[in-house]
Design a protein around this nucleic acid. Structure first.
Length: 475
RNA sequence: CGGGGAGUGGCUCAGCCUGGUAGAGCACUUGGUUCGGGACCAAGGGGUCGCAGGUUCGAAUCCUGUCUCCCCGACCA
């Protein structure tokens, strides 16, 4: 039931939890650090999957599925990889009532087990490129969890590809990052900065990691997708080789890239407000709810009309709910559907019917308009398109208004909670570490492609710097 | 893991200090009246008080342990 949410101003974290719980996206489970994704939340995830999966297929990838359990020895084959993931692993030591000869690790990511198969499947350059994707769950033991943003088990998609050359792998890495950028901006209406990650933020086992970074309403950054150029690191560890055009054996060049249910959290923190969930139409499970108004006998014709309009809207490709529940008043329902994040509310009552009209209310700005019924479908679609666009524009304006160029460590400290900070950095890990320490958690987010690289001097040490990076506190 | 807070019908919480066999509001069910921004009346159903020990004639209440969640830090998608 719709209790009041904690306002964002008062406590952003509590607001976030309130929205997720009360809009029934997810619930806590009895398993520590794990959540249950409820039908509302799963419907959003399914829409995300649909969108991304279509883009993966369009870029030549095929879906496959690899085991949840990975022999521990596989993880050990790539030194940096094990080291990076060791603290987060869940390990199965017993099965079938007996202690296992070799423990299994529950996958935190699948590079190793997939490479064990790539090594068997790839013989020749004619087998390349190999472009696979897997939709799966993974487990990473976390100290502190947050609904959708960081849970012990989460759902994601991990792409794994093999290429003949380094250049092709790099091209693929950037291509998939661009897929994420496009998806984030065009589907999620979430503006992002696509760019290079620093070495300290690089995926364990990768040569280079790229990310897309979004700004949430509390001005903190959310890494919303990553794409890695793995070079030949895993290929060497697993002997994934092919006979090249030159007749020689070569290790394949690989990439991997992933996006997770964290995106749902990003959606919430980007668009929602103190009344509840706001979802971009392209991902919203319900586009329109038709609230039937009226009492007793006057309801009959209204319900009939509502159903007819719903049918028309559905034919136009919209997802529609008709609410003719007589036991609740309309006002109550308005609050409920706003909380649930339905994009458009259509109010339909006897007065509207008399005029041959209905009232349409947009969730994001609550703008209200009386619309002739014969134009309802066209207007609804136009409003949804406008809403999709408006959400993106508003989020972008917010991000831009909270992005600052800073010229010194002092300024960086002062603005630590203000948003995205653009600062020159000499690339020395020590300077990066110092920023994190002195600012109470500001880290390098990435070096956006769109950020012009002009030489300057590092805000920490003053040494020459090749260009600026974006810094922020992050989820 | 450190600091702070909280676990009592589905939800929000009272009761705990000063032990005596569990209560309110909301939600839910049924019937009726309502319906353009959170309707009302009446009747009803629902809780081994997070879990496990202990003290006691008797524990929601006192003691010990443990689990979970929230907030703030350290690690991470």
């Amino acid at each position: 039931m719709a209790e009041k949410l904690t306002p964002r101003e008062k406590n952003f974290s509590e607001w976030y939890v309130d929205v997720v719980l009360k809009s029934k996206l997810a619930d806590y489970s009895d398993v520590k650090g794990c959540m249950v994704i409820r039908p509302n939340g799963y419907a959003v995830w399914e829409n995300i999957q649909r969108g991304l999966d279509g883009m993966f297929k369009a870029t030549g990838h095929k879906n496959a599925y690899f085991p949840l359990l990975i022999p521990e020895s596989f993880l050990r084959k790539e030194a940096e990889h094990v080291e990076g993931f060791a603290p987060q692993l869940a390990v199965v030591t017993h099965a079938g009532g007996k202690k296992l000869e070799e423990p299994y690790v529950i996958r935190p990511t699948s590079e190793t087990i997939i490479n064990s198969m790539f090594a068997r499947w790839i013989q020749s350059y004619r087998d390349l490129p190999m472009l696979l994707n897997q939709w799966a769950n993974v487990i990473r033991w976390e100290m502190r969890t947050r609904l959708f943003l960081r849970t012990t088990e989460f759902l994601w998609q991990e792409g794994h590809t093999c290429h003949e050359t380094d250049a092709e792998a790099e091209e693929e890495t950037l291509r998939m990052l661009e897929v994420y950028r496009t998806f984030a901006e065009e589907w999620m209406a979430m503006p992002v900065l696509a760019g290079l990650k620093s070495d300290s933020e690089r995926f364990a086992g990768a040569v280079r990691t790229y990310s897309i970074e979004a700004m949430m309403q509390d001005r903190k950054a959310l890494q919303a997708g990553t794409s890695h150029n793995l070079g030949q690191n895993f290929a060497r560890a697993f002997g994934t080789q092919f006979q090249g055009r030159d007749g020689q054996q070569h290790f394949v060049w690989q990439t991997s890239w992933g996006a997770s249910t964290r995106l749902v959290g990003g959606l919430v923190m980007t668009h929602s407000d103190d009344a509840g969930l706001v979802l971009p139409p392209k991902l919203a499970p319900t586009h329109v709810v038709i609230v039937v108004i009226g009492k007793g006998e006057e309801r009959g014709p209204v319900v009939a009309k509502a159903q007819a309009v719903a049918e028309d809207l559905r034919k136009a490709g919209l997802s529609v709910l008709v609410d003719d529940d007589e036991s609740k008043g309309p006002g109550f329902k308005y609050f409920e559907y706003e909380l649930a994040g339905v994009c458009l509310r259509m109010e339909l009552g006897p007065k509207d019917l008399a005029k041959g009209a209905c009232v349409l209310v947009r969730r994001d700005d609550r703008s209200k308009e009386s619309v002739p019924l014969d134009q309802a479908v066209a207007v609804a679609r136009a409003k949804l398109d406008a809403m999709q666009k408006a959400l993106f524009e508003r989020a972008r304006a917010f991000r831009d208004a909270n992005t600052f160029v800073v010229g010194s460590l002092e300024e960086l400290k002062k603005r630590a909670d203000d948003g995205f900070l653009v600062a020159q950095w000499c690339l020395a890990p020590a300077c990066e570490a110092r920023i994190k320490e002195e600012t109470g958690g500001v880290t390098s987010r990435n070096r956006p492609f769109t950020l012009k690289q002009e030489p300057g001097s590092c805000v920490v040490c003053g040494n020459p710097s090749p260009g600026a990076w974006v810094w922020s506190k992050a989820y």
